[in-house]
Measured scan of single mutants.
Amino acid sequence: TPAEQLLSKCPWKEYKSDSGKPYYYNSQTKESRWAKPKELEDLEGYQNTIV
């Protein structure tokens, strides 16, 4: 779907730490963070409005 294509192009991906806590990693900037990036939230919100 178009929304899945947008998400696949987003540099932010969700991973799980050893303790199972989700964290987010940007493959372009090599940045990681615990809080979900706004860019990823926006894309997921867009995906939910299409489905």
Rank of each mutant, 00 (worst) to 15 (best):
residue 24 Y to M: 01
residue 31 E to Y: 01
residue 7 L to S: 15
residue 7 L to N: 11
residue 38 K to P: 12
residue 34 W to H: 11
residue 5 Q to E: 12
residue 29 T to V: 01
residue 28 Q to I: 10
residue 46 Y to R: 12
residue 20 G to C: 02
residue 49 T to M: 10
residue 20 G to N: 01
residue 49 T to C: 13
residue 49 T to R: 14
residue 18 D to M: 10
residue 30 K to R: 09
residue 30 K to E: 06
residue 37 P to N: 01
residue 37 P to L: 01
residue 23 Y to R: 03
residue 46 Y to G: 08
residue 14 E to G: 13
residue 44 E to S: 07
residue 41 E to W: 05
residue 11 P to I: 12
residue 14 E to V: 03
residue 44 E to A: 06
residue 4 E to G: 07
residue 48 N to Y: 02
residue 51 V to C: 07
residue 42 D to L: 09
residue 23 Y to F: 09
residue 47 Q to W: 04
residue 35 A to H: 15
residue 46 Y to Q: 10
residue 41 E to C: 05
residue 48 N to I: 00
residue 19 S to K: 12
residue 19 S to A: 08
residue 7 L to F: 15
residue 32 S to Q: 10
residue 35 A to D: 13
residue 33 R to Q: 11
residue 22 P to E: 04
residue 4 E to H: 10
residue 40 L to A: 06
residue 3 A to D: 14
residue 43 L to I: 12
residue 1 T to S: 05
residue 1 T to L: 03
residue 26 N to G: 00
residue 20 G to E: 03
residue 46 Y to I: 11
residue 15 Y to L: 11
residue 15 Y to H: 01
residue 42 D to R: 12
residue 39 E to A: 08
residue 36 K to N: 00
residue 23 Y to S: 04
residue 19 S to T: 10
residue 27 S to L: 03
residue 34 W to V: 15
residue 46 Y to M: 15
residue 32 S to C: 06
residue 1 T to A: 09
residue 6 L to P: 12
residue 42 D to K: 07
residue 31 E to K: 03
residue 43 L to V: 11
residue 36 K to P: 05
residue 9 K to Q: 13
residue 15 Y to E: 12
residue 5 Q to T: 09
residue 19 S to Y: 05
residue 5 Q to M: 09
residue 7 L to M: 14
residue 39 E to Q: 14
residue 38 K to T: 07
residue 26 N to P: 01
residue 19 S to R: 07
residue 6 L to D: 15
residue 13 K to L: 09
residue 39 E to C: 02
residue 24 Y to P: 01
residue 12 W to I: 07
residue 22 P to M: 11
residue 44 E to R: 08
residue 9 K to H: 07
residue 11 P to M: 12
residue 38 K to N: 05
residue 31 E to V: 03
residue 45 G to L: 12
residue 32 S to P: 09
residue 3 A to I: 10
residue 13 K to F: 06
residue 5 Q to V: 07
residue 27 S to E: 09
residue 33 R to V: 13
residue 40 L to V: 05
residue 30 K to Y: 07
residue 26 N to R: 00
residue 49 T to N: 06
residue 40 L to W: 01
residue 48 N to L: 02
residue 51 V to S: 04
residue 3 A to Q: 15
residue 50 I to K: 15
residue 6 L to N: 10
residue 39 E to R: 02
residue 36 K to Y: 03
residue 25 Y to F: 06
residue 16 K to V: 12
residue 43 L to Y: 14
residue 24 Y to V: 00
residue 26 N to W: 01
residue 30 K to P: 05
residue 8 S to H: 07
residue 34 W to E: 13
